[in-house]
Simulated assay, not measured.
Amino acid sequence: MSEPSHITTRQGRRIAYHATPGQGPMVVFLGGLKSDMEGTKALHLESWARERGRAFLRFDYSGHGQSGGRFEDGCIGDWAEDTREVVERLTSGPLVVVGSSMGGWQALLLARACPGRIAGMVTIAAAPDFTEDGWWAGLDEAGRAVLMQRGQVELPSDYMEPYIVTRRMIEDGRENLVLRSPLALPFPVRCLQGTADEAVSRDTALRLLDHADCPDMRLALVKGTDHRFSDPACLRMIETAIEEVSAPGA
């Protein structure tokens, strides 16, 4: 495994990344919550892009993987700042953004910040607004009181160690919601979602599909597939989706 390169953001966060040169539009992979750029999808897509001479970028948000900082000190807005700065400093020209889980929310925030840079988008089990609709909505009154008074609670995860959810994550998440106000996506979008996903429901995928203002947006539901969306058939679907949104006039 090669060593990553690093940049330091304007906020002082040290971000690790791997960039593969090639033709555009460059594919930028945005990983999920507590995931990292060494995951199956990121590495597979990097190899796929390299074989085709396609530019590709993967990185770790602050508090994730090989980047600096602690996860529990971060929030959606911090990771959106990381994403924007990585894009501003390490890419040029049009982009195809691939967002997995929380990375799907980050992709939508990036589209809000710089829609002119995005040629196409692929989301995989996108989880927009999950801090409000998942974490906060899932707490009972006692849990909410603990979170507000102590500043954090611990929530179980089916895929890794428990999440430390902080008050700042919840309050910052409310400043970055994308399903409560107009969401313009003026480029082709492909959304992929497994029906056996226990972390992000198909209702979230349908809500995003209904809410977004997009001239070319399609949702594919894959029966029996879970949140990882990483078996060979799913990886081929991601490849096909990237090719679709990259095509001229797509």
Rank of each mutant, 00 (worst) to 15 (best):
L43M: 13
R89S: 12
W48Q: 13
E88P: 13
A42Q: 04
D36N: 15
K41F: 01
G77A: 11
E85N: 14
I124M: 11
A80D: 11
D82P: 13
V122N: 10
R52M: 08
D140M: 11
T83M: 13
Q66T: 03
R52E: 12
S92R: 15
D78R: 03
V98R: 10
G31Q: 05
M121E: 00
L109W: 02
F130L: 12
L33M: 05
W136H: 12
T123E: 02
E85S: 09
A145N: 10
G68A: 15
L147A: 11
M102T: 04
E38N: 14
R117V: 06
S35L: 07
I76C: 07
G116Q: 13
D140R: 10
W48G: 10
A107C: 14
G65K: 01
W135G: 04
G116M: 12
D129M: 05
A80E: 02
D73W: 07
L30H: 06
E132Y: 12
P115D: 08
A125W: 00
G32P: 02
S62L: 10
L147V: 08
G31P: 06
R70C: 06
Q66R: 14
F59V: 00
L147R: 08
A145G: 03
G31Y: 00
G39L: 11
D78W: 14
V97Y: 04
C75A: 14
G74L: 03
T131D: 03
G68T: 02
W136Q: 11
P115Y: 08
F130M: 13
C114I: 12
R52P: 12
A111S: 15
A49T: 03
W79G: 00
G39K: 01
W48H: 12
L139S: 10
D60H: 08
L147N: 11
E88S: 14
